[in-house]
Nucleic acid binder design. Structure first.
Length: 296
RNA sequence: GGUGGGAUAUCCAAGUGGCUAAAGGAAGCAGACUGUAAAUCUGUCGGGUUUCACCCUUCAAGCGUUCGAAUCGCUUUCCCACCA
């Protein structure tokens, strides 16, 4: 059977059928599942995230799901901790691990460093945010170049989040961006102790589109709109992470402009296909794939 | 039947004489990726080629005015509104 210290990783675009595939693999191999999904970590967001139901889990234990309340902040660093703990616990029970999910950035943490250890003090955080609010991109880019010893750093200087994040790191550490980046690249993945076998699930365009469409349709039928209303009435704001996700975002817009329900379905489907595209690009360039399996 | 308003690229939509192959969205396509990642951002986006350049075809259709028209005029077709 599988060796200890091996992580089976299953990924693929939304709606290919990762969950079902993983569950059956887990049942055959005495394994538990570690979800790698940036949205399944939120409690009370079930329909829009296509969170697997107990019935779908078929008795296989799932980890890294429902970790935090939907209004809490969550990020890769927290995911890494949770996943590491889950993997450790599964191994200690002499069971196998299957990592399943389509969240590219989170998934990348299994192969490469994806965060560094620089702590950003609150005052630096605030300073940079205020600087951006006051003087825009130009202001923070100038500051970043200064902080990098006058030369333009290898950062996407048109992307506010990237620039702010780089600037915060420089200010917090007192070092140049290039130094920080060099060190970062030399780090190893938090999961580098494990061997990985990574499977990419695929499907031809036609049937993937069909599945994505059916899934969007089912979400609405299963009460997506009601779920959004209930999340909103529990005090969640549209800017909070979960509500920014595909399905939720469209529903919030739809609730505001009262167009036919068909339109909502169509929008969700479109966005889902956009995500599929992005995921494929990501998997191609960022994730080392060992095996591709075509589902049909 | 009458009057008024409209017809712009895949869709929505700016543009009222030259700097217009035509603003801006959306969709599409390609891509980036150090802590919101289902996020954020970039490029491209009429057609063709020898692609920092050139050529062709576009603003409902036709004709006309003009050195020059998506923009002005006439006619036709279609849509919308109101009046009969």
């Amino acid at each position: 059977m599988w060796t200890d210290k091996l992580l089976r990783v299953i990924t693929g675009p939304t709606a290919v059928g990762k969950s079902a595939y993983a569950v059956s693999l887990a049942r055959e191999n005495n394994a538990e599942i570690v979800s790698c999904d940036s949205l399944l970590v939120y409690k009370h967001a079930n329909i829009g995230t296509a969170k697997p139901t107990p019935a779908q889990m078929c008795g296989v234990k799932h980890h890294c799901i429902d970790l935090v309340e939907p209004w809490e902040n969550f990020d890769v660093a927290r995911y890494i901790d949770a996943a590491a703990e889950a993997i450790h616990s599964i191994h200690s029970r002499r069971k196998n691990v299957i990592v399943v999910g389509g969240s590219g950035f989170y998934l990348k943490s299994f192969y490469r460093p994806v965060t560094d250890c620089i702590k950003i003090p609150k005052c630096v955080e605030d300073f940079v945010e205020e600087e951006y609010a006051a003087s825009g991109m130009e202001g923070i880019v100038t500051k970043l170049i200064d902080a990098n010893g006058g030369s333009c750093p290898s950062v996407d200087i048109k992307n506010p989040r990237r620039v702010m994040s780089a600037l915060k790191r420089c200010l917090a550490s007192g070092r140049t961006h290039d130094e920080i980046k060099g060190e970062f690249m030399a780090l190893s993945s938090p999961f580098s102790d494990y061997q990985k076998h990574t499977i990419l699930l695929e499907r031809d365009d036609e049937s993937l589109r069909k599945l994505a469409f059916e899934r969007a349709k089912k979400m609405i039928a299963d009460g997506l709109i009601e779920e959004v209303q209930s999340l909103l009435s529990s005090g969640l704001r549209p800017s909070d992470s979960v509500l920014n996700a595909i399905g939720y975002r469209e529903t919030i817009g739809w609730l505001a402009d009262a167009t036919p329900e068909d339109e909502l379905l169509h929008k969700i489907f479109r966005s889902t296909m956009g995500l599929v595209k992005k995921q494929k690009t990501w998997f191609r360039s960022q994730i080392p794939i060992d095996e591709k399996i075509s589902l049909r």
